[in-house]
Nucleic acid binder design. Sequence first.
RNA 1: GGGCCGGUAGUCUAGUGGUUAUGACGCUGCCCUUACGAGGCAGAGGUCCCCGGUUCAAACCCGGGCCGGCCCACCA
Length: 804
Amino acid sequence: MLKKTYDFKEVEKKWQRFWEKEGVFKFDPKSSKPIFSIDTPPPTISGKMHLGHAFSYSHFDFVARYQRMKGKNVLCPFGTDDNGLATIRLVEKLNGVKGTEMSREAFTKLVLRTLEEIRPKYIKDWKSIGMSCDFSIYYTTINEHCQRISQWSFIDLYKKGRIYRKRTPFLWCPECQTSIAQVELKDEEKESKFVYMRFDTSIGEPIVIATTRPELLPACVMVHVHPDDKRYRKFIGAKAKLPFFDREVDIIANRDVNPNFGSGAVYHCTFGDMDDVEWMFKYGVKPIEILNKDGTLNENAGKYKGMTVRQARKAIIEDLKKEGRIVKIEPIKHAVHVHERCGAEIEILMTEQWFIKYLDIKDKLIEAGKKMKWFPPHMRARYDNWIEGLKWDWNISRQRKFGIPVPVWFCKKCGEPILPDEDDLPVDPTKDKPKKPCPKCGSRTFRPDPDVLDTWATSSLTPQIVAEMFRDQGLYNKIFPMSLRPQAHDIITFWLFNTVVKSQLHFGKNPWKDIMISGWALDPKGRKMSKSLGNIIEPQTIIKKYGADALRFWAASPKLGEDMPYQEKDIITGKKFVTKLWNASKFTTRHLKGYNHVKPEKLTEIDKWMLTKLNDLVRLATDAFEKYEFFKVKVETEKFFWHVFCDNYLEIIKPRLYNREKYAKYEILSAKYTLYTSLLTTLKLMAPITPHITEEIYQSYFRKKEGYKSIHISPWPEYDTSVVDRKAERAGDIAVDIIARVRKFKSENHMSLAQPIRRLVIASEEVRPVLQAMKDTLKADEIKIGKAKGFETELFKIQIYIEK
RNA sequence: GGGCCGGUAGUCUAGUGGUUAUGACGCUGCCCUUACGAGGCAGAGGUCCCCGGUUCAAACCCGGGCCGGCCCACCA
């Protein structure tokens, strides 16, 4: 017996505990069922789960639950990505410390301890939305297992000649004091000053140079003008004298210069931006390094030594003014590269870093992208677009206190890099020592590489991280390549791309077969949620108020890949659906008490109509799920359930249920069979989307009869051709059309629906098989087929006559 | 500037080359029908962004705009 009202608070918790205790979602390594492996995105532990998480994680949970019901051995692990900057920042904040001021060992200890404390609470958020992950297949990207794989990856790529170390100008964050990668850059519009300054030249006439970075003057190595620029032709080949510095630089012709921008003359400093680096290589000039790692100027900056970039900018402008070298200063707004994690303006510094070489295989990577199935397909364009725009190899070393160590020592004598044996992984070069002497010079003294690997260097290995857990059971090749990578569209260029790179470089294979890309949860006005806008909506608040099923129901609304503005009313719709499902189930199961589910020999026409509709829905929902189009499953099942099953079918069979004595035995059995099948099927179709309510109803009534421990491991409905009857379907459709018209008539005449009508004449032969059902449903004293005039139905344009 | 996506009722959204364009929320009226009032039934509400073209037929296909979003490149 179902209770009068549905208490989601109690029920959702109950089944979440049940699923966990009973291991309903456990991956079974011994099973012979086909494996469906999901490369679950490991969220960064950052305090709380946000709505975007709830949104996109729900999406692939729908898929996981569907595949499980389809009989697959679903491998849906859960990991957390906690070796990156976001984690460092959080730990610093929670403990009131600065990583840069602590020893690597002490800080690492603190991070790990803090993570242990906050992790369970964080993971709880994921459980509370009903994620059907196997939480026992857990990894954190900083644990030993991941360290081993990440360092193995480094060594393997090193051996393959794909990793190199180079001292080169590269992107540097002075705030975090580490190098970063191209993908970590973000553009920000900032107010700045465009300074026009006058340099003396060797031809006597001064040249005016415009720059936003006057503080880089000490690092000026050349002046560039466009060869066709008449104003400057005469300067080409001459030399410019730098103010305050006793140095002259060449003025050269360069077609990259835009004569219409600024003064048309550019001074080339090492390094203002990545173009300067390109020019440096192109023209073979020696860089002048003036920046320290903390963003202050060094001795090469002369009297500006020790100043920060901002201080130096101000001071140099003042000095130029004093010498009368400022022509004008224009305020401008321009895009500045900032570090996407901390927002600090990035600089370019000469440092030694490790790189993964991949610019040479761009074509191969684009080809690899074509070999995976993208859902929705157009998301592949972003992947291609990113690869086409790549300019630099992948910098994977970071100068941070916390992370997976770069597994390298350098020989103190000859400088040779020494890598550990794979069997010894993971290693921390700052603590461990190489086991053998330097193979090149035989020395036994080494210098550890103090750097760590970029977090993406590890998270790009999630398929290996998961598959390796099952290598001992011989399942590696069944899990990898994985069936599905689900993720949101914002990290196609990070996580997705990097994972493909690793998989291709290591194995020459793609990491997955399918890719499912989710959109974003936006605020009610369609804006991104952010702290600064103060428009953050927390999933936990929604769950408390409306329940996880309502939230998931909402998450299933958009087309795959589309963003979804959060509107409370949509959650309420989900809540209403849950209530409706509860009430209809209450009614249905009450009338199925003691019912023994067997298919009767004969079905009534109207029941055939119902079952035909039901089977069409099963087919549609199955096709949709195979294409990851869960929104179609939701929309169509909801429509069917509400309007076909509740509004019409239940009303149609009420007479049979309430006045059994008036009907033949088969008619009652037929009704019960149809009721049972329709409700159970509806529950199953909705189970992936609203897992709690469906489980509650299943457990309360169906479990004893069906036998499966949980609806979520019961079989997905099959299309049953034996009950599909197109003629009955048409008769039923027309009947429903007529019923609607009669209801309208009653509504227009202020009649209660329960109030009988005297006579109904229908001008359609096709409804003859369902005539009795209509008579009972409409409470008509008399019903017949014949010539009729009066009203016309909406859909089929059937003429009918109604007498009050 | 390049790429991709989108522009449908007050709001959010579905949609296929072909009757009267989907559903939800909101709104209006009726019904208090033994599952459900967080309900039921019914109703009002739309030049399907604009301009051209293809077609017997276009919200849908093509071209050109305009607007919004995301990703990328942005200039010293």
